[in-house]
């Protein structure tokens, strides 16, 4: 299969070739192919994690959801209908699982809001500047702004596609995106 040759490479979310290939991978996963699942994970985990993190604002929960998303994909990939939008499907799963986790959290009254700040900087190898940008996104934006910026930055998806994933109107996505970027720029120049 084609996917074996690019097992660890990041996919280009906007190329149809890669989207088609992802659909082949999903078809193989539907036949129980774990190698295909591994490929899918390697090539999409950053985007899935980033999106989960942008919803949950908590890296432990995002980590759990990251794992749960691929298990869910493995068990339900046969329900995927190939329409050229495998990433939209994967993000929909991510969003649903993350929102479910949020609801559970609220029910049990847990989740310190700023759990994100606990990220061990020394382990991550993040540069100070990169970390500041991530902190700005996590702390200074509204939930929707953060999700939009994260999807845009991590996947290169067009605002139109993000609007579909987030079930929002295109102008809303556009204005929120620009407001978010502006806020982040302000935070980065003026300090958080």
């Amino acid at each position: 299969m084609l996917y074996s040759i690019c097992l660890t490479s990041q996919i280009e979310y906007r190329t149809h070739r890669d989207m088609r290939q992802l659909e082949e991978v999903l078809a193989a996963i539907a036949h129980g192919d774990k190698e295909a699942l591994q490929h899918l994970y390697q090539s999409t985990r950053t985007a899935v994690y980033g999106f989960a993190l942008s919803i949950l604002k908590n890296r432990h929960d995002a980590e759990d959801i990251l794992q749960e998303v691929y298990i869910r994909i493995f068990h339900s990939s046969d329900s995927y209908r190939p329409e050229g939008k495998p990433m939209a499907w994967i993000f929909a799963i991510t969003r649903n699982l993350a929102l479910m986790r949020l609801r559970e959290g609220r029910r049990y009254g847990e989740l310190p809001e700023e759990a994100w700040a606990q990220i061990p900087a020394k382990d991550s190898g993040l540069s100070t500047e990169d970390r500041m940008v991530l902190d700005a996104a996590m702390q200074g934006l509204t939930d929707e702004e953060r999700q939009i910026v994260m999807l845009h930055a991590l996947t290169g998806m067009k605002h139109r596609e993000i609007a579909e994933v987030m079930e929002l109107a295109l102008p809303t996505v556009l204005s929120k995106y620009h407001r978010a970027i502006k806020k982040m720029r302000h935070m980065l120049t003026e300090g958080l």
Partner: peptide, 15 residues
């Protein structure tokens, strides 16, 4: 640049 940094930061912190 903001987006590049964000992408790098997430890519390096994804468990």
């Amino acid at each position: 640049e903001i987006e590049d940094r964000l992408r790098r930061a997430v890519a390096q912190s994804v468990p």
